[in-house]
């Protein structure tokens, strides 16, 4: 499925690899279980490594491995399950993660601006998605009343420009 990044769609260049399959020398997205199991083996790997975490995972478990990760994928199994918002924020705010945070699952355009403000970078979207709809949704509210992690300009004491 395509990936939405900064207003544009692009092909997903990450390969999802099962826990027991061999890892190709290309960007791979593996499970948290495999990441933890094979941490030592993966240490020598050069191609980019990504991990998909469930919404019940405390991102703290990734802390020692984050320097090796180029992608952390979080998920909204249902559109109203917002745990991924906190996971993304923790990764950025104090776990020091600077790689890509990708959001998968039942994500709708109305989530988009808030996901970005929590530190997400990209969203996995359905084939045939119109990126313009997501951009319009992202831009419709350009003022925020609280600190966030997207590009933001303070405009007064409590307010920020975000879009």
């Amino acid at each position: 499925m395509p990936v939405l990044e900064k207003g544009a769609l692009r092909a997903d260049d990450w390969q999802v690899v099962d826990d027991e399959a061999a890892l190709p020398d290309a960007p791979v997205l593996i499970s948290l279980a495999r990441l933890l199991r094979d941490a030592a083996l993966l240490a020598g790997r050069n191609a980019p490594l990504g991990v998909a975490i469930g919404n019940d995972v405390n991102p703290d478990v990734l802390a020692p491995l984050l320097p090796r990760l180029a992608l952390v994928q979080v998920v909204l199994p249902k559109s109203r399950d917002g745990r991924a918002f906190s996971q993304a924020r923790k990764l950025r705010e104090y776990l020091g993660y600077t790689g890509e945070i990708r959001v998968a699952g039942h994500v709708i355009p109305d989530h988009y601006a808030m996901l970005l403000r929590c530190g997400a970078s990209t969203v996995v979207v359905a084939e045939g998605t119109d990126a313009a709809v997501w951009e319009a949704s992202r831009k419709v509210v350009s003022i925020a009343y609280q600190h966030g992690l997207a590009a933001e300009t303070p405009i007064s004491l409590l307010r920020r420009k975000v879009a």
Partner: peptide, 9 residues
């Protein structure tokens, strides 16, 4: 108001 993290509790 429209808190980015706490709108889908």
């Amino acid at each position: 108001t429209l808190h980015p993290e706490f709108t889908w509790l």
